[in-house]
Amino acid sequence: MTMLRNLGHWWLGIMARMGRSLIFLVQILFGMHELLLRHPREVVMQLYSVGVLSLLIILVSGLNVGMVLGLQMYNTLVDFGAEAALGPVVALSLVRELGPVVAGLLFAGRAGSALTAEIGLMKATEQLAGMEMMAVDPIRRVVAPRLLAGIISMPLLAAIFSAVGIWGAYFVGVGLLGVDEGAFWSQMQAQIDWRDDVLNGVIKSIVFGVVVTWIAVYEGFDSVPTTEGVSRATTRTVVAASLSVLALDFLLTAMMFNK
């Protein structure tokens, strides 16, 4: 009996949080036009801390993932004499899956956690309450620019990740292992469709950007305003955002590439 009750309590808690987060998102979206008209500079500030500061980790991981993919794929493909297929294999896996997903996971860890901690601490130190006292809506002034910056940054970061990864595979494959340069690029161009592959990857990354940033700002805004509460909220952001990226990726892949 108590077990059932606990289960029900847990489930209702989850449902209530989901409902609150949805209302929260709607509130942000309704404040968006005002943000863009009156404080566009705020978005630029957030683009810096959300996007520019994530650039380094994205560049380094993209290069590494591309280089490792190039090396491993080469070892397998060379057995079949198909090392010319290195280009399309690496580019397809990066553009379709690894670019958006790994960039999304890194984004959740690098920018999402920072967003939650920042907003959570604002709440804990009663800055948000102070804003409300001054008739400034913290959702419009604090949360909306961060969400928008996350949505803009994520596709750019994913594209940079993929491009850098392909260059990494190029350095390893063509530079070190001696794959033919012409075959590397021409096979890639022949195999990759800009709409089916590139555009779908961009759509994926936009979806991940929305979800990760949404979770991050919501967890921060909804956190228990104590030291422990903020730390828990930050953890929850990284876990929930990463899991959502992976789950959504499966759904989106099933919808996009089901030929």
Binding site: V95, A159, I160, S162, A163, Q189, I192
Partner: peptide
């Protein structure tokens, strides 16, 4: 970011 997107479209796809 836009340059990366442009490159993905022009150099790496059809």
């Amino acid at each position: 970011g836009l340059a990366a997107l442009f490159m993905l479209a022009m150099k790496m796809s059809n």
